[in-house]
Simulated assay, not measured.
Amino acid sequence: MDTTATALHGWAAGEAGRPASPDWTIPQNWAAYTPQEHATWATLYRRQMALLPGRACDAFVDGMRRLPIEPDRIPDFERLSEVLMRHTGWQVVAVPGLVPDDVFFEHLAHRRFPAGQFIRRADQLDYLQEPDVFHDVFGHVPMLMHPVMADFIQAYGHGGLRAQRLGALEMLARVYWYTVEFGLVREAGALRIYGAGIVSSASESRFCLESPSPHRLGFDLARVMRTRYRIDDFQQTYFVLDRLEDLLRLAEIDFAPLYEQVGRLDTLPADAVLPTDAVISRGDGRYHQQRV
C-alpha cells in the first residue's frame, strides 16, 4: 500500500481514483499493510496519546478505551465495526480516500463511516492534505461510541443530502467543520477537544487550547454557518459547545429557514469577532499575521 510522493487518493485523484463500486467502498485488505505502514501508525498513535490527556474530552478517551484501537498496528475495520454496531449501530467502511459529497452523506445517513484505507508516509507525519486512516479512525471513530455524536453525524448525513437539493451545502459544511472536525467543548471547568481534525494533529492539539493567537467563541449555529474556515493551516477561530448534548438540538432543527436567513447575510472571514459573539478568549492573531 505504499504511495508515491505525488499520489492522490479517491475523488482527489479524479477518474483514476474511482473504484468500481458505486458507493466507493473497497476492501480494507488489512493483511497488505506493510511493517513500515504499521510503524507510521505506531508513531502517530504514541505521539497523540502522550499529548491528549487533559486536552481531549471524556467521550474521546472513553471511545479509545472501549474500541480495538491498538498502539502498534493499523486497526482492522471489521473488528471496529463489531464493537460499534453493538453500542451505537455504526460501522466503518473502507474507501480509497475522499469521496463525492453525495456518497459521503449517503454513508453517514445509514450509519456507515467511510474511512480512508491508506496511511500517510513517514515523512508526512505533521501534515497531509487528504484524510488518511489515522485521521479517520483515530480522530473520528472513538467519538462514534458516544450516542450523541453517533446520532448527530447520522443527522448530518440526512441534512447534507437535503442541503444539496437546496443549494446550501457550503453553509452546512461549515457546521461540520467547526464541530465534528475542529470543535471544542467545555468540560470540568476547562476547554477540551472533540473535533477529529484537532485530536489527530499533534501541533493543533496544542495550538487550539494554548496559543494566544486564535479566537475561542461560544457556539452559535447561524454565526457558524456564515464563517469561512482554514483548510491550509490552523484555525483562526474555534467555536465552543457548552456540552456535547447541544449537538442533538442541532439535529432537531429545520435548517431550510436558516439557509434563507443566513444566505441574505454577508459571509464572515475566519478571524471575525462580532459584537454579539460570546467571547471566551479573543485571540491576538499573531500566528497568522506572521505567516503572511
Rank of each mutant, 00 (worst) to 15 (best):
D2W: 03
T4H: 08
A5Q: 08
A7N: 03
A7D: 10
H9V: 09
G10H: 09
A13E: 02
A16H: 09
P19H: 11
S21D: 14
P22M: 10
P27S: 12
A31G: 14
A32K: 02
Q36F: 06
E37A: 04
T40F: 12
Y45I: 11
Y45T: 08
R47S: 06
M49N: 08
L51S: 15
L52T: 12
R55H: 10
C57K: 07
D62C: 10
G63T: 06
G63V: 05
M64W: 04
R65S: 14
P71G: 07
P71R: 04
R73E: 12
R73F: 02
P75I: 06
F77T: 14
R79M: 07
V83D: 07
M85T: 13
H87K: 13
V92T: 07
V93S: 07
V93I: 14
P96S: 09
H107T: 12
L108Y: 03
Q117S: 15
A122I: 11
Q129E: 08
F134G: 12
G139M: 05
H140C: 12
V141Q: 03
P142Q: 00
P142F: 00
P147C: 05
D151Y: 01
D151L: 02
G157E: 06
G157K: 05
G159R: 04
L161W: 00
A163W: 00
G167M: 01
L169F: 04
E170K: 11
A173T: 15
V175I: 15
Y178N: 05
T179K: 04
F182S: 06
E187V: 13
Y194T: 11
G197E: 10
V199K: 02
A202P: 05
S205P: 13
C208N: 02
E210S: 03
E210D: 08
P212V: 02
D220F: 00
D220G: 02
L221M: 13
A222G: 12
R223D: 06
M225V: 14
R228T: 15
Q236K: 14
T237I: 09
T237D: 04
Y238T: 08
V240F: 01
R243V: 07
D246G: 11
L248G: 11
E252M: 08
E252R: 15
D254Y: 05
D254I: 12
E260A: 15
D266S: 15
D271I: 05
V273C: 00
P275C: 00
G283C: 06
